[in-house]
Design a protein around this nucleic acid. Structure first.
Length: 474
DNA sequence: ATGTTC
């Protein structure tokens, strides 16, 4: 497919609407960050998404955009719930509610340095990770899992896994409303029962980091961050449960497409009107899986707190927890009219501006923390939501792949990468050499460039840069 | 992303 990009600003490109697109495509990126790898069909996917029934304004891509299942990763699309707008599982992603949580430690990097090895050893021994079963919390059965899926991180806190303040710093206070566990199939339940409190594999990690640089002192202070401070960043999702929910509902929606008269350029965009039986079934299951992912991050937080208490007598305060694979029902102005939209963010972080009523009181003046993890061995960024965000309050979610996993395996050896990271002073506790090689820093875009482009595009602003001290990988 | 191909 031949796609013409019109450069509107150094940080914004436009794909003009042409049949069968319903809206234009808008790509927030620099020329250097545009998908260029051979075979990367991300821009074609931006165009495909623009054909979806009920889509409003534009099909958006964030600076870390790359090829995904149906929708690009780094894609944002909003559909009008009350005008036949669709919900598509491919617009959320297989890892429903995959997201990031940042914790601020009560210790700086200097005092922690002599105890770093022991800290990493304890984290390496206590954080369940890798493929397959194994989690910190053994659930009694479907009924307990059902309660967890209804309440999310709040369920974990109510059961002693965390403190009430944690919930104040979780998106939606840790509970996405509307969860319907009855729409989560038996296979998903069976997989989920054995994985609550586990990191998973691939790009998921638990990292010990230090604040390397502060760009905005007052906002960093409001977030509880200062230069030299140690942090913990947790990146994980809803494991096999979310994956199974996505598979099951993609299949169901593929079957129901004809009954709604929906024609798609790619079957991976399988969808249904958000207001329909299959649409609400998926939304209920998605919310259940989202809450599972949030409870998962809450449990891993407790493992990190245990290690920090034992080794350093230091606490970990939650800065923020935000999902970057979600569809949410939100009200936005579209051409001057308030509309109820289904906002798909797939590999895109919600970024509420200052003054938004959904922010906790103590963050109302500075905006939502926007967490942008880098890849292994590189920096991560803390940004903040801004007024004027043109993509339904959305921003980048990470570095974004440029090599496929297969390409990475051909070019990188896990053992060698491990040695390189350790020689740079980064302690690594991997589960498998293969997973390590797949996540090589060279397989990703430059996260520093992604953060700069995110700010340049007016999606969020820089607050702090974090560098890795130690990483626990699946 | 993923009991790494129903």
């Amino acid at each position: 497919m031949d796609i013409t990009l019109v450069e509107e600003t150094p940080f914004r490109f436009r794909i003009e609407r042409q049949v069968p697109m319903r809206v234009p495509g808008v790509v927030f990126a620099t020329r250097e960050l545009l998908p260029q790898a051979a075979g990367d069909k991300a821009l074609e996917q931006v165009v495909n998404v623009a054909t979806l029934p009920g889509i409003v304004r534009a099909s958006y891509a964030m600076p870390d955009v790359h090829w995904g299942y149906g929708f690009p990763i780094g894609g944002v699309a909003a559909t009008d719930m009350d005008a036949g707008g669709v919900i598509s599982p491919g617009g959320v992603g297989f890892d429903i509610s995959c997201g990031v949580r940042l914790l601020a430690a009560g210790i700086d990097r200097g005092p922690l340095a002599p105890r770093m090895r022991r800290l990493m050893d304890i984290l390496g021994d206590t954080v369940p990770r890798g493929l397959g079963p194994g989690g910190l919390w053994k659930l009694s059965g479907r009924s307990q899992l059902g309660e967890l899926m209804v309440s999310g991180a709040a369920y974990a806190v109510e059961h002693g896994r965390g403190v009430p303040r944690d919930l104040e710093r979780c998106e939606d206070r840790g509970t996405l409303p509307g969860a319907d566990p009855s729409q989560v199939g038996q296979r998903a339940v069976d997989r989920g029962l054995r994985q609550v409190g586990s990191l998973g594999s691939a790009n998921h990690f638990l990292e010990v980091q230090a604040v390397d640089r502060v760009y905005d002192e007052p906002t960093a202070t409001a977030f509880g961050l200062h230069t030299g401070q140690v942090c913990v960043m947790i990146h994980c999702g809803s494991r096999g449960l979310g994956h199974q929910v996505c598979s099951d509902h993609v299949h169901a929606m593929d079957q129901s497409l004809r009954s709604f008269g929906i024609e798609l350029p790619d079957r991976q965009l399988a969808c249904a009107p958000a207001v329909s039986t299959p649409g609400s079934a998926y939304l209920g299951a998605m919310a259940a899986a989202a809450n599972y992912g949030r409870a998962n991050r809450q449990l891993l937080t407790e493992a990190a707190r245990h290690a920090f208490t034992v080794v350093a007598g230091a606490g970990l305060d939650l800065v923020y927890d935000v999902s970057h694979n979600m569809a949410k029902i939100e009200t936005h102005d579209v051409d001057g009219v308030r509309r109820r939209l289904c906002v798909h963010r797939k590999g895109a972080t919600r970024a509420l501006p200052p003054g938004h009523p959904d922010l906790p009181d103590d963050l109302a003046e500075v905006g939502q923390p926007v967490l942008v993890p880098g890849t292994m061995g590189t920096a991560s960024y803390v940004m903040a939501g801004v007024v004027g965000n043109a993509a339904f309050w959305s921003a980048a979610h990470g570095a974004g792949r440029v090599w496929s996993r297969h390409q990475a395996l051909r070019r990188v050896r896990g053992e060698q990468l491990h040695e390189e990271l350790e020689s740079h002073g980064i302690a690594v506790r991997p589960k498998s050499w293969r997973a390590l090689a797949e996540e090589a820093p060279d397989a990703y875009k430059d996260v520093d460039a992604v953060a700069v482009a995110t700010e340049g595009a007016g999606l969020a602003r820089l607050v702090a840069r974090l560098v890795p001290l130690g990483v626990v990988k699946g």
